[in-house]
Amino acid sequence: MPDILHFEFMRNALFAAILSSVACGIIGTYVVVRKIGFISGGIAHTAFGGIGLGYYLGVNPLVGIIPFSLAAALGIGLLTRKAKVAEDTAIGAFWAAGMAIGVILIGLTPGYAPNLFSYLFGNILTVPSADLKLILMLDLMIALMVWLFSKEFLAISFDEEYARISGLKTVALDLLMLCLIALTVVIMVRVVGIVMVIALLTIPAAVARSFSRTLHGMMVLAIAFSVMFSIAGLWLSWVFDVASGATIILVASFVFLVTSLIKASRFRMAH
């Protein structure tokens, strides 16, 4: 492994793996305990519109994603919490509309769209240094927000009703959390692409959950699992010369399957 670190793209890939794991370990923990994976998937796919916008305007697609994923987070959140629209309906509408906008904007862009595939399915080997800085900034922002609102986020996750009774603005906090998910999506796009974001948002945290007694412990463990999955996937993709994002997802899914099976067999033996 060390000799492949000679290459700058490999070092960047490693940094990207670690930095993105921080965000998806922290935010993924909330996604898993609150069971809002589907909403996160919706936000991620809506973000495709932002990629189209980036191509159309000739700016970094990663920057184009930010307004789209935030709009999806707020839109889905407000529709379901305030307008009482069924959650799966709101998610479905945003999901498809975001992708449709992306397709149209990319179609309107003259010439062909380079690297489009890498935004859909990720390519951790082509993360430019500028994107790493953006990822680091978003990481710090997410960590700071979670540190500041840790008692409120714990309360709305464990017992939203009690949080509301205690005088918390639960809808606003909920929207804030969805926005943090949106920013995590931006971070993850480079690593696994918008289509597979949902796997890294849920699997490391889901595996960590079996071993954790507190939410903070679960976050730390989820980060560790995510780093492990990313680096193992990166290495395997290097060895077998296959797509890195997909390999990371397959490693994560494999570990998830194995731990789930172990858990299930233990459960059966105990009962």
Binding site: K151, F158, D159, Y162, L215
Partner: peptide, 29 residues
């Protein structure tokens, strides 16, 4: 509240649940 409505799998200690009672006494942040 009725205790039935809890996610028993939630990674939270008894202490953290009790501390939640202090939410109404503390401001945001």
């Amino acid at each position: 509240p009725q205790r039935l409505f809890f996610d028993r799998e939630f990674p939270i200690s008894a202490w953290e649940v009790v501390m939640m009672g202090r939410l109404s006494r503390r401001k945001l942040l």
